[in-house]
């Protein structure tokens, strides 16, 4: 949790700076080379991220249980992984969809992920 607190101030700064830039310098676009941007847009990650498709269609297909088992797994193995709940990507037939992004690799999506990991 302490890490998140630290992340928040960086996020705050990022949001305020960029919103200010959008307004005051309309020709400016987001600086994609900045470190903040890379972290927030997940172009650069320090630890694995698990994305769970958790729109209503995902929950209907069992994403709630998937999410719970992912969190349990992380808790019991004591590993540092971010879990993000997403909306629906549109491929409702393959829900629950779980994306996994490991540092150094492309983000990859798996379909029909029930409680197993």
């Amino acid at each position: 949790m302490s890490k998140k607190q630290g992340g928040k101030t960086m996020t705050d700064k990022f949001i305020n700076t960029n919103l200010g830039l959008f307004y005051n310098k309309p020709d400016n676009s987001i600086k994609t080379e900045s470190e903040d941007y890379k972290v927030i847009s997940r172009h650069k990650i320090n630890k694995p991220v698990v994305f769970v498709g958790a729109g209503t269609c995902g929950y209907g297909a069992g994403a709630g249980k998937t999410l719970e088992s992912v969190k349990n797994y992380i808790h019991t193995k004591k590993i540092d992984i971010d879990v993000v709940e997403l909306g629906c990507i549109g491929l409702c037939a393959a829900e629950p969809i779980v994306d996994v992004q490991i540092p150094g690799f492309n983000r990859i999506a798996f379909g029909h992920v029930t409680e197993k990991k």
């Binding site: 996020t11 990022f14 949001i15 960029n18 919103l19 959008f22 307004y23 005051n24 309309p26 676009s29 987001i30 941007y37 927030i40 847009s41 997940r42 498709g53 729109g55 993000v84 709940e85 997403l86 909306g87 629906c88 990507i89 549109g90 969809i97």
Partner: peptide, 30 residues
Amino acid sequence: LQNCGILNPVSIAEYIAFGGYSSYLKTIKS
């Protein structure tokens, strides 16, 4: 649908990182 299922829906920072709210702020300025 470009961000749906890709970005975290409850993170304003991610939305802004992908250009979010730039349309609005640029428009009211110019």
